[in-house]
């Protein structure tokens, strides 16, 4: 029974992830990743943004007609900082896209991979035994592909759990909207 439970949990987890959306998870993971590995770059970006605001204010206070030299120097400083900010933002954008692609593919491989590995490992192990005669004459389907007859195979159990999980998700979603509709 432990096996059955274990498989059910895995399927539930996978379905939850799928329902939540790979991209959502990837975005969250990206935020975590940024804060752990790229903290200084983030801090730097924020600093530059603040600096740009101050320089911009000062520039607005300087009259170009009366103090052209100062005004021009401030403008040069501002342009330089704006260019740097653009560069950093672009690099972040690139990083985000590449990270999300990698993470999403990792998730997909992991979830499907685990399922396949489990199925292969427990190819001929029965999950549990069906009571005799409940589903005859088609009991042989449940034991596909290699489990001893009269039992439920891992593959089939996976299938069953997945279908169950999907139905639960759908019901949950529908009930949520139902409540919202009827409470308003």
């Amino acid at each position: 029974m432990a096996l059955a439970f274990f498989i059910a949990m895995i399927v539930l987890l996978t379905e939850l992830m799928l329902w939540f959306g790979y991209s959502q998870i990837a975005s969250l993971a990206y935020i975590v990743y940024l804060n752990i590995f790229k903290k200084e770059d983030l801090v730097n970006q924020r600093k530059i943004k603040r600096a740009i605001l101050t320089v911009r204010q000062e520039l607005a206070r300087t009259s170009p007609q009366d103090e052209f030299a100062n005004w021009a120097r401030l403008k040069r400083k501002l342009d330089k900082k704006v260019n740097e900010l653009e560069r950093i933002t672009a690099s972040f954008g690139y990083l985000k896209t590449s990270f999300e692609v990698k993470f999403t593919s990792f998730l997909w491989v992991a979830s499907n991979g685990i399922q396949i590995i489990l199925m292969l490992y427990f190819l001929s192990t029965p999950v549990f035994y069906l009571p005799q005669g409940w589903f005859s004459p088609v009991t042989w389907i449940f034991s596909m592909p290699f489990a001893p007859s009269g039992s439920v195979s891992v593959c089939f159990w996976f299938l069953a759990c997945r279908k169950m999980a999907k139905k639960v998700m759908v019901t949950y979603k529908d009930s949520g909207t139902y409540f919202i509709q009827h409470s308003l």
């Binding site: 170009p64 007609q65 052209f68 021009a72 403008k75 040069r76 342009d79």
Partner: peptide, 13 residues
């Protein structure tokens, strides 16, 4: 003059 100066600065940058 102002405008010429402004253009010159822009051009130099």
């Amino acid at each position: 003059e102002f405008l010429s100066l402004y253009e010159t600065e822009r051009m130099i940058q």
